[in-house]
Amino acid sequence: MEHTQKFDGSTTSDGNESADSDAGRLVGSDRVLAVLKELARYPEGVGLEEMTRVIGSPKPTVHRALSSLRRAGLADQNARGHYLLGDEFLRMAFAHHEARPEHVRIRPVLDELAARFGETAHYAVLDGHEIVYRAKVDPPTGAVRLTSTVGGRNPVHTTGVGKLLLSLQLPTSAAVEEWIGDEPLVARTPNSLCTAEELYRELEVTRERGYAVDDQENEVGVNCIALPVYAVSPTVPSGALSLSALTYRTPLDVLVDAVDEIRDVLGPLGRPHE
């Protein structure tokens, strides 16, 4: 019978430590990964006491997880004794991100749109009920900028990119209801569309016009227009581009009026092809 070594020195049979004896408690590799993810929240570093409190495991156990990450170069310790993400982790993350084919191809488009409109351009993809930002370009000028980050997430139903991509996957009201499931959609602002009926109508309109809008549905004071991007497959969007703007600076109707101009900048990346 196989045994699996745990961080606290004990063993379990057949590798079922998480499912059987430690249900609800982080063990083994799950704990190491939880510590790694938590480190990302502290760019200035975090002490062992704070990490122990957040992770909810004994201090020696968390310390051993941190030591494992340090040996792999995925964590480091600064002069104050605080832990933070290691250079090797950052090297791998940035190298992987820069090598994504869609990121490389879409970046010049984002640069041009951000410079031309003086607003923020994003490229994002679907991940379940969330969208993930793969690239972001802020305008070259302007004191006020958006807080979105590469790797950051937002709900699908409150974002232009999310609704644009969802419209191509959920053609019927039944499909929308199934996608929503039993968990109610959360309203981020008073404008958020949170019922199956509202969302289906919005997706239907989005499919017909070929672009989506976010009318202050994810964040008050911010709107956007989103279009599909065909960076990998000639027929299926790899993600979506959004031009996100502060409403007082660039109202939504200005973005909508510029949709053809945005399509021109996208060029072949914005059209399905054989």
Score class of each variant (00 low, 15 high):
Ala75Ile: 03
Asp76Phe: 00
Asp76Lys: 03
Asp76Ile: 01
Gln77Asp: 00
Gln77Asn: 00
Gln77Lys: 06
Asn78Ala: 00
Ala79Met: 00
Arg80Asn: 03
Arg80Lys: 03
Arg80Val: 00
Arg80Glu: 08
Gly81Asn: 00
Gly81Phe: 00
Gly81Thr: 00
His82Ala: 00
Asp87Pro: 01
Asp87Trp: 01
Glu88Asn: 05
Phe89Tyr: 14
Phe89Arg: 01
Arg91Tyr: 12
Ala95Val: 07
His96Lys: 12
His96Asp: 14
Glu98Leu: 10
Ala99Arg: 14
Ala99Cys: 13
Arg100Asn: 05
His103Tyr: 10
Val104Pro: 00
Arg105Thr: 05
Arg107Ser: 04
Pro108Ala: 01
Val109Gln: 01
Val109Ile: 11
Val109Asp: 01
Leu110Ser: 04
Leu110Tyr: 07
Leu113Gly: 02
Leu113Lys: 05
Ala114Gly: 02
Ala115Leu: 08
Arg116Gln: 12
Arg116Cys: 05
Phe117Asp: 02
Phe117Tyr: 15
Thr120Phe: 11
Tyr123Gln: 05
Tyr123Ile: 04
Ala124Lys: 03
Ala124Ser: 15
Asp127Leu: 12
Gly128Arg: 09
Gly128Pro: 12
His129Gly: 09
Glu130Tyr: 09
Glu130Thr: 13
Glu130Pro: 03
Ile131Met: 13
Ile131His: 04
Val132Ser: 09
Arg134Glu: 13
Arg134Thr: 04
Ala135Glu: 15
Ala135Lys: 03
Ala135Trp: 01
Val137Met: 07
Pro139Gly: 04
Pro139Leu: 04
Pro139Ile: 05
Ala143Asp: 12
Leu146Pro: 11
Leu146Gly: 13
Leu146Asn: 08
Thr147Ser: 15
Ser148Ala: 15
Thr149Gln: 14
Gly152Trp: 08
Gly152Ala: 10
Arg153Asn: 09
Arg153Asp: 10
Asn154Cys: 11
Pro155Gly: 10
Pro155Ala: 14
Thr158Tyr: 02
Gly160Glu: 06
Gly160Thr: 05
Val161Asn: 10
Gly162Arg: 09
Ser167His: 08
Leu168Ile: 09
Gln169Cys: 10
Gln169Arg: 15
Gln169Lys: 15
Thr172Leu: 10
Thr172Ile: 08
Thr172Tyr: 08
Ala174Val: 14
Ala175His: 13
Glu177Ala: 15
Glu177Leu: 11
Glu178Trp: 07
Glu178Phe: 05
Glu178Lys: 14
Trp179Ser: 13
Ile180Trp: 07
Asp182Phe: 14
Asp182Trp: 10
Glu183Ile: 13
Pro184Ser: 13
Val186Cys: 07
Arg188Glu: 15
Pro190Gly: 09
Pro190Tyr: 10
Pro190His: 09
Asn191Met: 07
Ser192Ile: 04
Leu193Ile: 03
Cys194Lys: 07
Cys194Phe: 03
Thr195Trp: 01
Thr195Leu: 01
Thr195Ser: 13
Thr195Glu: 02
Ala196Trp: 06
Glu197Thr: 09
Glu198Asn: 00
Glu198Leu: 03
Leu199Ile: 11
